[in-house]
Design a protein around this nucleic acid. Sequence first.
DNA 1: TCGAATACCTTGCAATACAAGGTACTGAAA
DNA 2: TTTCAGTACCTTGTATTGCAAGGTATTCGA
Lengths: 118, 118
Amino acid sequence: MIMETATGIIENNKTQMRRGVLEYSILLILAKGDEYASSIIQKMKDVNIIVAEGTIYPLLIRLKKIGLLNYRWEESTQGPPRKYYMITDYGREQLDGLDSAWDELARGIETIRNGSKA
Amino acid sequence: MIMETATGIIENNKTQMRRGVLEYSILLILAKGDEYASSIIQKMKDVNIIVAEGTIYPLLIRLKKIGLLNYRWEESTQGPPRKYYMITDYGREQLDGLDSAWDELARGIETIRNGSKA
DNA sequence: TCGAATACCTTGCAATACAAGGTACTGAAA
DNA sequence: TTTCAGTACCTTGTATTGCAAGGTATTCGA
């Protein structure tokens, strides 16, 4: 049984909000250059979007499966080999659509926030 | 078995993005004035945030249960009585937190989008 | 009295984020 | 040469939750 506390509501919602943009931000990051899972997690953390490993690995596999991403193995001198993901042409197409979706959502929220008092 | 199609990916993600801001937008709407479920759905649809009835009713009940909302019954000349929801003081407090959470997320996405090419 | 419009609500399914736990490689210290 | 710390990969099980579908009740006009 999980208690819902004051900060819990906020935390919970932050998590919810993040969920919605997970795939979007991964594609955004990979559109700038190839990255491996751990570095994606780090880049997202840098902008306060927290993702767990258990989230990112299955997600990358899924995005690969539906053709948005590909990967290649690359040796590392600092540990085990890294799986570098890259975005496909198809992935870039889809990313365009997600850009629009995000803009639309952001506009929608903005409208509700600032809209006339009825 | 559900096939994932090109538009399906986008649609799916739009849905995902919406999910994250569902509670937030409900609180935003109710912070401006009392509304009943159907009118909330309509107001959200007006800004292209689509919500189903099966989503909103359980959600309003949940938000009431954790103290963010209250409601009162009001007669209608155009059908059955309406359950008008209103935001509580506690709800307003929490809404402040959600405002920040949204701003932070929007900033994060913006940074990833426009950040230096590295 | 029947249907259309409006409004409320519940059930069951499917999607999915994440905590927790696990494997394996490298390099350096003991 | 064994052990440990750091890095990187991955899987399993659980809990949450949005929504399609189905259901009840009220009002009003034909």
